[in-house]
Design a protein around this nucleic acid. Structure first.
Lengths: 209, 209
DNA sequence: TTATTCTTCACCCATAGGGGGTAGTTATTC
DNA sequence: GAATAACTACCCCCTATGGGTGAAGAATAA
């Protein structure tokens, strides 16, 4: 364990909040706020020089938004952990941020204690997520229980999604190729699509498989 | 806010652990352990009668395993929240459990405090996840940065995955159908597949798109 | 009992998709 | 200056896929 402090930068356009965070974090001996910025552009410019371990990032920013900022940071320095700190709780923003490479996502309603807790979690190899965000994330794994498809059709669709051909599917389900085709036609009709990949796309999006 | 206690059942084959949990939980006025079981089969049989709000479930069980147990419970009573409590930290088990319908996943190394914390989180609409599990889950959203594909190929593959045909892809990228085909051939070669859906399947699994 | 849904199978027809090549241009790297 | 990689484009050939239509036995609902 190095005695070096954990280097942090803050990107947040609301100055009082930004400076408040910095003060709080700096009051702990383990952490050191190297710099604070009000835009991604400037933060990115100084990234090498600042050499942070963790970035505390807002999403709604003037100029480049946080999502794009995350992508750029991860592209040049994938080892940096980015914690999103925002008021936005909508699903799209959350998933976009995580897909872009965020290591955690906490809401601004979080107490100062939670903020510090998030830093500790990152440092110990975890991934800080606020309650409602964690719920959203966990829910994204779960299947849609009210599928329009029959169980047989779902079975066929699952095989389709694994890249199996009509004949392979037929073999695996002990039916003829024509029957497999029938099921697939019915699936397409129910999902309003007309090709394998469209069906797979829709099935994954709507968590039917 | 109802003054009713939160009803909990525990499914755990290690009797001392099971009884230990029950004792701890019952020591809090907010919670009430209705029943404890050492197998899913018996727990399922008494599910209606016990009418729990939360199930604390082990994964490695004699007879029916926890994953299957989760599926059965969610099928008959989707409103019940299931917290997995296990020593297993391997990715597959974690994702299987979440896909099956678990609302949380904590490891047995968790302290009693964390166990109670998990119950509180569920009660307040969150999703309790141990640090390493949260990390795993968040990571599952992130793209693989070392893709064997070129940026153009990735672009093509993304359109493929959305169910677009060769001609549509060609149009959207302002290239000929034959060029699109060339890219796709190269993608197939690099991914060692030979059809759209196999490519999509592999791309999603390996987070190339 | 009748009606409906699910599952199974079949035949025709057209085309999108996939396997095999070849090759020019530009950019980058060595 | 040569070699490599990326992007572009074209050819031939053939099968897998998808649309249309019809139908029979089993199971389930009304």
């Amino acid at each position: 364990m190095s005695s070096e402090k954990v280097r942090i930068i803050i990107v947040e356009d609301n100055e009082p909040i930004k400076d408040g965070f910095a003060l709080i974090i700096n009051s702990f001996p383990k952490y050191y706020v190297v710099n604070t910025y009000t835009s991604c552009e400037v933060a990115l410019k100084n990234l090498r020089k600042d050499d942070p371990d963790i970035i505390l990032m807002d999403i709604e920013l003037p100029g480049m938004n946080g999502i794009e900022g995350i992508k750029r940071v991860k592209k040049v320095s994938p080892q940096i952990d980015i914690i999103v700190n925002t008021i936005h709780e909508n699903q799209e923003k959350v998933f976009d941020a995580l897909c872009a490479g965020a290591s955690g996502y906490i809401t601004k309603s979080s107490s100062h204690n939670e903020l510090l807790n998030a830093l500790d979690q990152i440092s110990s190899g975890g991934a800080p997520l606020s309650g409602s965000i964690a719920k959203m994330v966990v829910k994204s794994f779960q299947k849609n229980l009210q599928s329009p498809l029959t169980s047989r059709e779902t079975e066929v669709l699952e095989l389709l999604s694994k890249g199996k051909s009509y004949s392979i599917i037929a073999d695996e389900l002990f039916i003829t190729k024509e029957t497999a085709k029938s099921h697939i036609k019915n699936i397409y009709a129910k999902l309003h699509v007309n090709s394998k990949s469209q069906a797979i796309d829709k099935a994954l999006r709507e968590k039917l498989i």
